[in-house]
Amino acid sequence: MINGGHVILYSRDAEADRAFFRDVLGYPHVDAGGGWLIFKTPPGELAVHPADGPPAHEFYLMCDDLAETMAELSERGVEFSEPPSDRGWGLLTSIELPGGGRLGLYEPRHPVAHSLPDGR
């Protein structure tokens, strides 16, 4: 049956963003050929939110301690799009990707599903 998910980030500079995930975040990866890297991501979750406009998709990284994670990433040269904000459900910021995109980073304050056992 289904054994995983595949997230795609579209980028204006895919090489720079691939280097970011490989070198800055240190994500393990495989080369699918010709330098086309596919990364192993941390455990994930899927949420479905209502939309007033056209359907859209977003990808966020999660952490246990936002301030600590931001400090560690800052030491590696990562820039943030915005200061942390408390959204009630968690503390949120955004990472500036080298290709010009943004990637959400948050410390959840809600129950998390990524550690639940498999099963139905």
Rank of each mutant, 00 (worst) to 15 (best):
A47P: 15
G35N: 10
D64A: 15
L91G: 15
D31C: 11
E58H: 01
T93S: 10
D65T: 14
R76S: 03
M70C: 06
L25D: 01
Y60K: 05
E58C: 01
D65M: 06
H57F: 08
D13S: 07
L25C: 00
H6Q: 12
L9S: 01
I8Q: 15
W89H: 14
M70W: 05
I95V: 04
E68D: 09
A16Y: 00
G100Y: 07
A32T: 12
H49N: 09
R18I: 05
M62L: 14
S74A: 10
S11D: 09
G119N: 02
W36P: 11
A14K: 15
E58I: 04
P98M: 06
D118K: 05
E58R: 01
H6R: 15
Y60D: 03
L46W: 15
F39R: 04
P83W: 09
S11M: 06
S81N: 06
D17C: 04
I38V: 13
M62E: 05
E79W: 06
D23G: 12
G44W: 04
G33Q: 08
G119L: 03
R102Q: 09
H114P: 10
G90E: 15
A47S: 15
E15I: 12
D17W: 03
P54N: 08
H29G: 07
G101L: 02
A14D: 04
R109P: 11
P42A: 06
Y10T: 04
S94H: 11
D52N: 00
E75Y: 09
A14S: 11
A56T: 01
F39P: 06
L97Q: 00
E75L: 11
L105Y: 08
P108I: 13
L97P: 02
Y27N: 07
S81T: 11
A16T: 03
L97K: 02
R12G: 12
V30N: 12
E75M: 06
A14N: 09
D52G: 00
P28Q: 12
